[in-house]
Design a protein around this nucleic acid. Structure first.
Lengths: 238, 238
DNA sequence: GAGTATTTTTACCTTTAGCTAAAAATATCT
DNA sequence: AGATATTTTTAGCTAAAGGTAAAAATACTC
């Protein structure tokens, strides 16, 4: 044990930063500009917050070198992610929100609900392991299923895949895909992945061809069609 | 039409003040100290906020004379009250929260949910007209059922009454009453109302006698036992 | 109605979280 | 390696929401 870090509730801004750092930490530290862009905030503000997070023992931070989460910071981030994904699930399954509208509402709610609420909600929902976008829901103990899906942009021609996940955040993307029947679990065969412009051509089960541009192909995550649907593993990076 | 009061979302503090002013406005204006006590805040802070509310067109305020809501302020307050009561209903009916724990959670949530959420929740709950404590839920259009119940402390000996409402806020009160089976809808006959010390003696349907001290008797609201259960009316003071 | 008590306000601080503009460090390019 | 470009930090401001302590107004009491 180290410091007198009595767990006083973290402000919602702090939570936002922790979540974004977590999301962006593929490995190593994240830069001020990246975080600033995600949070629509000035880079200078991020520098300030990085310092504060460091003092609070939630992140390590070195000037000009970016920040990364401490175990405690990661724990807090995952707690929020769990809340977010459970709330999204609730919004869709019980309040009939559409795929597209769910993210924004959850973003606000996740900072207002208690652990008590979260666990009761999990109970109500039957302890789901994935949210409606296909993202794994961190368990109450902080473990998280290892991610097996990869962006469609990294698939290879001829592969038969299943849509495992669609990144939320951008409602238009979800909207567009939804209209074309590109929903979770849908099977596709990859016709072409063009290196030059990143365009991906796929064919769905009805034989319709869909052409996805680079950014779209990076928002759709797929798994090999033969890969079993369920998984549950222990912690790891995002 | 008057001012450039573009409806930008109100902060949650502002909302708290509006609600408290609304609750305390039996008639006329409310004092700084009253509001300060309710919100656990220094009187000076209340003075500041009163001024701000005035500028925003949410309240009228005169130095040394207290504040009261403008129609717009009242509308905002009622919107929050609606949210609060719908959320409480949801917490109890779907998340199995107990009578006692519901208030605090709802207090935080009501500032985070959107109108969209609120109305979908109302739908899910079947558009209830009262919350689990018996308080009327303001309608989406801002109307509110007229209150017909009065505190038990104002009942008179010999009256046969039904528990119509129990004020939330103090979990211990709800706890105590719950343990003794004094729940919503329960019929009681008033045995004695002692003017000196405000003690009220009642007898329940099983013939058990309960003695309530002054403060408790002010938290329990009753209606004449013959009065029909449902009511729906238009706007009025709390 | 004068004097005391209480309430309310004023004046001035504090923290959180953001901003801008300029300075400093790091990266990139030829 | 030197010059330019980009990123990051520093310094100093702002607005919300709170707090304290002293001054001012109102209320109460004899």
């Amino acid at each position: 044990m180290k410091g007198p870090e009595t767990t006083q509730p973290l402000s919602s801004s702090i939570g936002d930063y922790l979540k974004v750092i977590w999301e962006l930490t593929e490995s190593g530290a994240v830069s001020t500009t990246d975080v600033a862009a995600r949070l629509s905030v000035a880079p200078a503000s991020v520098t300030n917050m990085f310092r504060r997070l460091q003092e609070m023992g939630l992140a390590r931070y070195e000037r000009y070198r970016g920040a990364s989460l401490t175990p405690r910071g990661r724990r807090e981030a995952l707690r929020l992610v769990r809340r977010h994904r459970l709330i999204e699930t609730f919004l869709m399954e019980h309040l009939k929100y559409s795929w597209q509208d769910v993210h924004e509402e959850a973003e606000r709610l996740e900072h207002a609900v208690s652990d008590e609420f979260t666990e009761r909600l999990a109970e109500l929902l039957g302890h789901p392991s994935r949210d409606p976008h296909g993202d794994p829901i961190p368990a109450a103990d902080g473990t998280l299923a290892v991610e097996r899906s990869r962006p469609l942009s990294e698939a290879s021609a001829g592969q038969r895949v299943r849509i495992a996940k669609v990144s939320d955040e951008i409602p238009e993307v979800l909207n567009h895909l939804g209209e074309r029947g590109m929903t979770l679990g849908r099977r596709l065969s990859v016709k072409e992945v063009r290196a030059l412009d990143g365009i991906v051509k796929v064919e769905d089960e009805e034989g319709n061809e869909h052409v996805l541009g680079e950014s779209l192909a990076r928002s759709v995550f797929v798994r090999d069609a033969s890969d079993p649907a369920r998984d549950r593993g222990s912690a790891g990076s995002p």
